[in-house]
């Protein structure tokens, strides 16, 4: 039997969730015995090369590219998992929700205390750039998400237990320590 295929991506996230995945330490060796990685920053495969079984999504959607990637993941993966606070709720980037996007852009490119060079008052508008969304959306408000792993980031053990459960089909281990947050 071929190994289950896993893909991962970071949308509007800080890569902390991916770091937490790496935090499974030496178990990563067990993991690559168990699963095969496809599109993911972990193996640096940039485009999907086949249908996948599990997609792990870090971060929510703050721009059109995030939406495109997320939709591609939904198409390519049987199971999608929102990994961490940003994917589940929007997280820190969603602090801009509630502030009109125009104000956010002006703050970033014109008025912010660290803006000094933009004397011509240029707002980035090249067609190559992703378009900013009116607010930051959690993943499930864009596509169907099957599972959620909470935490900022979710603990390595939680990610590990979830992957093992998904791969083996056994019930997931959820000891108190991996889901308590304070």
């Amino acid at each position: 039997m071929s190994k289950p295929v896993v893909a991962t991506t970071s949308l509007a996230g800080c890569f902390g969730c991916h770091m937490s995945l790496l935090d499974i330490d030496e178990r990563i060796l067990d993991l690559i015995e168990l699963v095969e990685f496809n599109k993911s920053p972990i193996d640096d495969i940039k485009v999907f090369t086949k249908q996948c079984d599990i997609g792990l999504i870090e971060g929510g959607c703050c721009n059109s590219e995030n939406v495109e990637v997320l939709r591609a993941f939904r198409k390519q993966c049987k199971i999608l998992v929102s990994l961490g606070e940003c994917a589940i709720m929007g997280g820190l980037p969603a602090l801009r929700n509630g502030i009109p996007i125009k104000e956010c852009i002006d703050e970033a490119y014109l008025n912010g205390p660290t803006v000094s060079e933009n004397t011509e008052k240029i707002l980035p508008n090249d067609d190559e750039l992703p378009m900013l969304l009116d607010k930051v959306y959690p993943c499930h408000e864009v596509v169907k998400i099957d599972y959620y792993l909470p935490g900022c980031p979710p603990r390595a053990d939680l990610i590990w237990n979830a992957l093992i459960a998904l791969v083996t089909g056994d019930e997931m281990e959820l000891p108190y320590e991996v889901v308590k947050f304070d």
Binding site: P100, L123, N125
Partner: peptide, 19 residues
Amino acid sequence: DSGFDLASAVVDSCEHVGR
């Protein structure tokens, strides 16, 4: 159906930066 509509989500930002 998430109800998400990309076109309307980008209207404001595109208009503001002029694209």
